[in-house]
């Protein structure tokens, strides 16, 4: 599904990613761990196509298609989803209106008609139920005055609605208490399937207790320095990151 080859990326002449290789197949969950400043969030942004970063070498393929020339929205239309570490507020735009717009824009880009209002409502109801979201929440302005937990839950709700092929969850566990973390993890687990893939970006092992990865990669100074199974996460928890430097 996702193939990253020798990816180098920089921002304002500062090299951040220095040769990343990663291969994620459909149905898999990969965790990318690493200390602050190792390039985890940069990797997420670069995959999503944020223009602040310049890819200087290497490539990113999604289902064998090079993403390089695609704008962020085009990548989204092809099934890339990024759950943001810090979701932005859009005052006056309700969660429902936002997700409706997002879904219809993707549908149009892929040559489909807009989703009829009735089906849209049905889908919203279904996914809200799946993720245990109060319907009142859906008529609030996007992320405005949301608690940390609500923001992250809203990201997962959007993921559920958009049904992406590749979901990148950037520090989804940050700022969550244990109950909120469980709700979010539970949602991600329910959305996992043989047709999609999840990349979890996290600093701590905590999230991986609830979303169990197939592979764990350690990112350090812009490179993956170690890869392994889920046990690697426990090892990191016990020993910290220093032994890998």
């Amino acid at each position: 599904m996702l193939e990253i080859n020798n990816l180098h990326a920089k921002i304002e002449d500062k090299d951040i990613l220095k040769g990343i290789n990663l291969n994620v197949k459909a149905g898999e969950v990969h965790a990318i761990m690493g200390p602050n400043g190792s390039g985890k969030s940069t990797l997420a942004s670069v995959i999503a196509g944020r223009e602040d970063y310049e890819v200087s070498e290497g490539n990113i393929l999604l289902n064998n298609e090079d993403l390089e020339d695609l704008a962020p929205e085009e990548r989204a239309h092809k099934g890339v989803f990024l759950s943001f570490q810090y979701p932005v507020e859009i005052p006056g735009v309700t969660v429902t209106n936002f997700i409706k717009t997002a879904i219809n824009e993707s549908r149009k880009a892929n040559g489909h008609e807009e989703l009829p209002a009735k089906e849209m409502l049905q889908k919203i109801r279904e996914k809200a139920e799946l993720l245990d979201i109060d319907r009142k929440f859906l008529s609030r302005s996007l992320n405005e005055g949301f608690s940390g937990g609500e923001k992250k839950r809203n990201e997962i709700f959007q993921m559920a609605m958009l049904e992406p092929k590749l979901s990148i969850l950037d520090e989804t566990d940050s700022g969550l208490d244990i109950d909120a973390l469980k709700v979010v993890a539970n949602g991600v687990n329910k959305l996992k399937s043989q047709d999609n893939a999840v990349v979890l970006i996290t600093h701590y092992q905590r999230l991986l207790e609830y979303i169990v990865p197939d592979y764990v990669h350690v990112l350090h100074d812009g490179k993956i320095v170690k890869s392994g199974g889920k046990e690697l996460a426990l090892e990191l928890e016990a020993k910290g990151y220093d032994w890998l430097k």
Binding site: D52, E73, A76, F81, L82, F84, F98, A102, I103, S106
Partner: peptide, 14 residues
């Protein structure tokens, strides 16, 4: 902000 626009773009909204 750039952040708002990128957020929308990422969700498929140009």
């Amino acid at each position: 902000g750039e952040d708002q626009l990128f957020y929308c773009n990422q969700r498929g909204i140009d």
